[in-house]
Design a protein around this nucleic acid. Sequence first.
DNA 1: AACAAAATATGATAAAAATCATATTTAAGA
DNA 2: TCTTAAATATGATTTTTATCATATTTTGTT
Lengths: 143, 143
Amino acid sequence: MFTNSVKYALKAVLYLAVHSDEDNKIMVKDIAGPINVPKAYIAKLLQELSKQDIISSTRGVKGGFYLTQFNLKQPVLNIIYAIDGTYRMNSCLLSLENCNETKPCPLHTIANPMRTKLITSLKEKTLEDLSIEIKSGTTFLPL
Amino acid sequence: MFTNSVKYALKAVLYLAVHSDEDNKIMVKDIAGPINVPKAYIAKLLQELSKQDIISSTRGVKGGFYLTQFNLKQPVLNIIYAIDGTYRMNSCLLSLENCNETKPCPLHTIANPMRTKLITSLKEKTLEDLSIEIKSGTTFLPL
DNA sequence: AACAAAATATGATAAAAATCATATTTAAGA
DNA sequence: TCTTAAATATGATTTTTATCATATTTTGTT
C-alpha cells in the first residue's frame, strides 16, 4: 500500500506529535530507536519533511525536530503526499490512465469507493487528532 | 497499492477471461499488445500463474494460454495472492507486527475496515463475474 | 571567538522490483 | 520422424527503493 518511506515517516511524525513541542525538541538519534527505523534513513526523511514545512527543526546545540501547533493541525495525508507524491494514492488499482466513473475498469466499482473514503479520512484526521488518541490510550504506537 | 506485476497479471487474466477458452488459446504475443505490457514481462507472469494452476496453458503448435470453466470460478484475490503473496494485502498500513483490534495502531480504525471490505469483495468476485461485466459493457478493459 | 552538538546536503552502496533475453522442452502437423 | 511453433526454465540487466555514510552549515555555550 505505502512505501517503507511513508510508513517510517508517519511513525516518526506521530512520535513527534506525542513527544515533542517547541520546548521539547527531539534529536534523530532519540527518534530512531523508539520507532524502530534505521537512524540514517529516518534522518533523511525528517530532513525532507522539514524542508517541506511538514515538521519543524532547529540546528545546532539544543536543536532537534518538533511539531508546532500549526504542524499539528495538518491532515495525515500531507505526510503521505510529501514522501510518496500524490499519484500512488490516487491512481486506479490497475493504474489505468483512462479509468473513471463513466468508463470504469473492472475493479473500479470494488476499489474506488474505498479509496475515496480512505483519502477523505486521511484528509480529515489531523496529526493532533491521532496524537490525542494515542495519548488517551485509544490507539498505540508500538515498535 | 499493488505491484506492477499484480496489475499486469490481473489485466492479462481478465483479457483471457473475456477472449479465451479451451478452444481459443491465446499466445503471449497476442496478449502483450492489447493489455499494453511488455511481452517478456507478461510471459514470465503467465508462466507463473500457469504453474500455480490459476490459468491454463498448452505448449507447442496451436498452444497458448486460456481459462477453463474451473479457472473462471476463482476469486480475483487468487491472482493477487499468487503474484504478491498474502502479506502485502493483509498487513497493517504501517506494517506493525502487533497491530490488532485490541491494540490498534493510529491508522487502524481508519484503514482496517476498508481493507477488510476490499479483501472480502475480491474474494467474492470471480473472474467470471468480472468477465460478464466486461462483456456486457458495464466495465471496461482499456490500455 | 572558539568549540561542540545538532540538522542539512550530498551522494554512495545494497536490495528489491521491473524488464529483457535466450536456450530448452513440448506438441501438432507434414 | 522431422520441423515448426508454442510455453517453460533460467538467468541477466536495468531501474527504483531502501539503506548507509560523511562533509558542511548552523546555533548555543564557554
